[in-house]
């Protein structure tokens, strides 16, 4: 039994699970479910689909935990599984042609923006409202958006982003730099 979960690193938990400890598995689920949801939402733009994909990601973690090796950080591994499942889902949609161009747009009701009272004070004082920031992010082109979500929202390291998106660290850095500038431009135009 794991009584004090905060003592354990992600990697220690996955090794515990590999030995059959299901409490370790649940702890990993609890640590990553919301982070993965926000990440996948960046791909599929619907909370329902995103949650389904996160479920499948954890199912895969359950059935393929043996595949994990110490060479990779657990976070990189699980984000990669989720990203691959999300891409598969997008390919399926393309084949079925369910997705029209307008569906790709950002929808307010998908994103549960907290009421003013729930927003931390320093962000209320911020120049940009959450709503505009979110809309601006989803107006970004795919490669910039993914890199930005992973780095600036999920707060992963450049190296982790590079592993997940499977591009060099140099490319990650330039994508993030350019993505931020693009975001700044979108926000500037919207606030005019």
């Amino acid at each position: 039994m794991i009584n004090n979960n905060k003592k354990y690193s992600d990697e220690e938990l996955i090794f515990q699970f590999q030995k059959g400890n299901e409490h370790a598995y649940l702890e990993l689920v609890n640590r990553y479910k919301d982070r993965l949801l926000n990440f996948i939402f960046g791909y599929v733009h619907s909370k329902e689909s995103a949650e389904d994909i996160v479920q499948d990601t954890f199912l895969k973690l359950y059935t393929s935990a043996d595949m994990y090796r110490e060479i990779a950080k657990f976070s990189t591994w699980i984000f990669t599984i989720a990203a691959n499942l999300a891409k598969t889902e997008l390919r399926k949609r393309k084949r079925r042609k369910i997705f029209s161009i307008t569906d790709m747009g950002f929808d307010d009701k998908d994103y549960e923006i907290p009421s003013e009272s729930n927003v931390p004070e320093n962000s209320i004082n911020s120049k940009y409202q959450m709503k505009y920031i979110l809309k601006a992010i989803y107006k970004l082109d795919e490669p910039f958006k993914t890199a930005l979500i992973l780095r600036d929202i999920q707060e992963l390291s450049y190296e982790e982003v590079s592993n997940i998106v499977d591009i060099s660290i140099g490319t990650v850095k330039s994508r993030i730099n350019r993505g931020r500038l693009k975001l700044q431009k979108i926000l500037k135009n919207e606030n005019k």
Binding site: D34, Q55, E112, P114, N122, S123, I133, R180
Partner: peptide
């Protein structure tokens, strides 16, 4: 300001019955 806002962005939460 933008980067600060990004870090403080409200996050989506999984449904209560997710587990």
């Amino acid at each position: 300001q933008i980067l600060h806002s990004l870090h403080k962005l409200p996050k989506l939460q999984t449904s209560a019955n997710f587990n």
